[in-house]
Amino acid sequence: MRWWFKARRGHLLLPLALAVFGSALYAVQDTTVLLPAVTGSGRVALSLFVPVPLLAFLMAALESRLPAAEVSGVRSMTRLDNALVITVMTAALLCSALVACVQESSTAATGGRNAVFLTGLMLLARAGAGQAAVMVPVGWLVTVAVIGFRGNLPRSWTIIALPADSMFAAAASLVVFAIGLAAQIRSSRKTA
């Protein structure tokens, strides 16, 4: 297991990823930015974009592997990879909750939930696109910014723009995350 973790560069990438995530979440607070939008007001919470570096670090860790050796090996690395993803997302949720408590801000509380949802999307896309799947969450973010609002209200399909107390967003995030983990199990034994 130690060799697997070193091969994934987890000892370097993941602490750095969580530090970047936590500090960015703390820094943006309730800041909104004006982005071009087809529908809605165009004002988007900057905290929506905070999970992107975390996802990039996570994808780098998952893709730093030796596919041929892992496919031909007796022990499947899928369970370890899924445990790694679950651990990182649990840490992101805890980090988000900590920042929300310190700032007394509901915006920070959505950071972990959004990271879970976007990670699920990334893992789903990784099954077919490989490392390029890291761009799928970015595409989702751009789509939400451009057409995800009706006036100042987010549409329900956006998930990440919904308020922190939205049970629908929390449930959808968990479902997409679980489907992403299942897709990773199915596709992890491929060499390409």
Rank of each mutant, 00 (worst) to 15 (best):
M77S: 08
S76R: 12
R126W: 01
L84P: 13
S105Q: 03
Q131K: 15
A97R: 15
M59W: 14
S72A: 09
V134C: 03
P137S: 04
F57A: 01
A92Y: 04
V102Q: 11
A125P: 07
S64E: 10
V52P: 11
L93Y: 14
S64Y: 03
V99E: 06
T107Y: 15
L121R: 08
R43V: 10
S106G: 11
A83C: 12
Q103G: 10
L118T: 02
V99T: 01
T107L: 14
V102R: 15
M122A: 04
A45L: 13
G73K: 08
Q131T: 07
S76D: 04
A129I: 05
L123G: 10
A125N: 04
A61F: 06
A60W: 06
L84F: 07
A115E: 11
T78P: 02
S96Q: 14
M122E: 01
P53L: 00
S47R: 15
C95K: 09
V52H: 05
F117M: 01
E70Q: 09
L54Q: 06
V134E: 13
R79W: 12
S76I: 00
T110P: 04
A127N: 07
V99I: 02
T87C: 12
Q131M: 09
T90E: 09
L55D: 00
A129L: 07
V50N: 07
S64I: 08
L121K: 05
V99N: 02
L93F: 07
A109Q: 09
A56K: 07
V44S: 12
E63W: 02
A109N: 09
A132R: 07
A109S: 14
M59E: 13
A125K: 08
V116T: 08
L121A: 00
G120C: 02
L124N: 03
A60E: 14
L46R: 03
G120V: 00
A133G: 12
V99L: 05
L98F: 12
E70D: 03
T110I: 06
R43M: 09
G128H: 01
A115M: 04
D81V: 04
L118W: 07
G111S: 08
L123P: 10
C95R: 11
V102E: 11
E70F: 08
L55G: 01
A61C: 03
T110L: 05
A109P: 11
A115K: 09
V52E: 13
P137L: 00
N82G: 03
S47I: 14
S47A: 06
E104C: 13
A45R: 15
V116W: 04
C95V: 10
A133F: 03
A83N: 14
G112Q: 06
N114P: 06
G112R: 04
L94C: 00
A133C: 03
E70N: 00
A115G: 09
L48T: 08
F49M: 01
T87F: 15
S47C: 09
L80N: 13
E104A: 15
A108F: 07
C95P: 06
P137V: 00
V52I: 05
